[in-house]
C-alpha cells in the first residue's frame, strides 16, 4: 500500500473504530476496572484494588453449578438450532426458487421484528397448562392428556431455539447458496446418491455457515437470563441471573463484573478449544 492509500484506508476505517472504542472498548474496560475494586467508585464510596471478587467468584460452588447449567443449556439450544436450521436453510437455498423464496425468507426473519419479551410471553400462553398447546392436543386426542410444559427446561429450550433459530438459518443459507450446482451435477454423474452428496459435499461446504450460526447462538444463550426466568420458572436460574442479581439486587457491581469476565473467559476457552476442529471444517 502506498502512503496515500493507507491514509484513505485509515480515513474509511476511522468511524468504525471510533464507534468500537466508544461503544465497546470503553465500557468493557470500565467493567474490567470495576472487577478489581472493593466497591464502585461512585459518590463518596471508599474503594481499593483487590482480587477478592475473582477469588469469591471462582471458589463459590453455587456459581460453578450455574455456569455448568448455562453451558449445558447453550449446548442443547445450539444443537436444536442446527438440527432444525439446516433443513430449513437447505430447502430455502436449494429447492425453492423465485418469489416464494422471498416470502419464506421473510417468515424466517419475522421473529426478529417482534420484541423478545413479546415472543417469550406468547410462548408462555402456548405452553402453560390449560394453554393453547394443551387444549389443541386434547381437542385432537380422544384421551385426556395433561400437557404442562411451562416452567421446565423444555420450555426454556423451546423459547430460546425459537429466538435464535434465524441466525443459523441465515448463515447456513448463505453458504448453501454459494455451492456451485456443477459440483453436485459432477457428483451425480459419477453415481453418487443424495445421502452421499449431502454427507460428502453439501454438509462440508455448508460447514462455515453452520459454525458461524452455532457460535452466534451459543455465546448469547450462555449469558441469557430473561427467557430462562420467564419460561423456566423455578428451574430458570442461570449464570446470567447471577450477574443480573449482583448489578440490580445488591448493587455489587465489582462482583457482577468479575462474574461477567469469567463467563467471557470460559466462552473464549471453549471457542479456542474447538478452533482446530472449526478450522479444519472451514477449509
Amino acid at each position: 500500500m502506498t502512503g496515500a492509500e493507507r491514509l484513505r484506508a485509515l480515513g474509511l476505517l476511522a468511524p468504525a473504530y471510533l464507534w468500537l472504542t466508544v461503544a465497546v472498548f470503553l465500557p468493557l474496560s470500565a467493567m474490567a476496572f470495576f472487577s478489581f475494586l472493593t466497591d464502585v467508585p461512585f459518590g463518596d464510596r471508599e474503594w481499593a484494588f483487590t482480587f477478592d471478587n475473582y477469588a469469591q467468584a471462582l471458589t463459590n460452588p453455587t456459581y460453578a453449578t450455574l455456569l455448568w447449567k448455562s453451558l449445558k443449556l447453550a449446548f442443547w439450544v445450539t444443537v436444536w438450532c442446527v438440527v432444525l436450521g439446516f433443513p430449513c436453510a437447505y430447502i430455502l437455498a436449494r429447492m425453492i426458487k423465485g418469489r416464494s423464496r422471498e416470502v419464506l425468507f421473510l417468515l424466517v426473519i419475522l421473529p426478529f421484528w417482534s420484541n423478545a419479551l413479546v415472543r417469550v410471553f406468547s410462548w408462555a400462553i402456548v405452553l402453560r397448562g390449560n394453554g393453547v398447546l394443551d387444549r389443541a392436543v386434547n381437542a385432537v386426542l380422544p384421551w385426556d392428556v395433561k400437557l404442562n410444559l411451562m416452567f421446565s427446561e423444555t420450555a426454556m429450550v423451546i423459547g430460546l431455539v425459537h429466538s435464535y433459530l434465524p441466525y443459523v438459518i441465515l448463515t447456513t443459507y448463505l453458504s448453501l447458496q454459494a455451492i456451485d450446482d456443477t459440483v453436485i451435477e459432477a457428483a451425480r454423474s459419477l453415481g453418487a446418491r443424495f445421502p452421499r452428496i449431502l454427507w460428502r459435499l453439501i454438509l462440508p461446504l455448508a460447514m462455515p455457515g453452520l459454525i458461524a450460526g452455532a457460535v452466534l447462538v451459543f455465546v448469547p444463550v450462555v449469558g441469557s437470563f430473561m427467557e430462562p426466568r420467564l419460561l423456566g420458572g423455578r428451574v430458570g436460574t442461570t449464570y446470567g441471573t447471577l450477574i443480573e442479581d449482583q448489578f440490580v439486587a445488591v448493587f455489587n457491581w465489582p462482583l457482577g463484573a468479575a462474574l461477567s469476565f469469567i463467563l467471557l473467559a470460559v466462552v473464549l476457552v471453549i471457542l479456542a478449544a474447538a478452533s482446530p476442529a472449526l478450522r479444519k471444517a472451514t477449509t
Binding site: 447449567k69 423455578r234 439486587a249 455489587n252
Partner: peptide
C-alpha cells in the same frame, strides 16, 4: 445491614441454583 443482605442473597442463589 449490607453484609446481612448479601448473605441472604448468597443463600437464595444457592437454593435457586440447586433446582
Amino acid at each position: 445491614p449490607d453484609d446481612v443482605r448479601e448473605s441472604y442473597l448468597a443463600l437464595w442463589q444457592e437454593l435457586k441454583a440447586a433446582q
